[in-house]
C-alpha cells in the first residue's frame, strides 16, 4: 500500500469511530455511578472464572479417559 493511502486510511480509521465514541461518551459521562457497569464487571469476572474451571475439568476428564484407553 502506498504511504499516502496508509495515512488516509489511518485518518479514516480514527475519524470514523470518533463520532461514535464522542457521542457515546457524552451520554455515559459518569459510568461509575451507573449500577449496570459494576454489575456487568462482576458478572464477567465470575463467568471468566467459571469458563476456566469448566475447561480445566473437561481437560482433566478427557485426559483420564485417554489414559484409561491407553492402559486397555
Amino acid at each position: 500500500m502506498r504511504p499516502i493511502t496508509r495515512v488516509i486510511s489511518s485518518i479514516a480509521l480514527i475519524a470514523v469511530p470518533a463520532g461514535v465514541l464522542a457521542h457515546g461518551a457524552e451520554e455515559l459521562g459518569h459510568h461509575w455511578d451507573v449500577p449496570a457497569y459494576r454489575a456487568e464487571m462482576r458478572l464477567q469476572i465470575v463467568l471468566m472464572i467459571a469458563v476456566c474451571l469448566v475447561a480445566i475439568a473437561a481437560r482433566w476428564v478427557l485426559g483420564a479417559c485417554r489414559r484409561r484407553r491407553a492402559r486397555q
Binding site: 457515546g24 461518551a25 455515559l28 459521562g29 459518569h30 459510568h31 461509575w32 457497569y37 456487568e40 464487571m41 458478572l43 464477567q44 463467568l47
Partner: peptide, 21 residues
C-alpha cells in the same frame, strides 16, 4: 457478556470536569 466493557476504563470526563471517582 463476551465483549469487554471498554467504557469502564474511560475517565476522561473526570479529568476534564474534576469529578471524583
Amino acid at each position: 457478556h463476551a465483549l469487554p466493557n471498554l467504557e469502564s476504563f474511560n475517565f476522561k470526563t473526570s479529568l476534564v470536569h474534576h469529578d471524583v471517582v
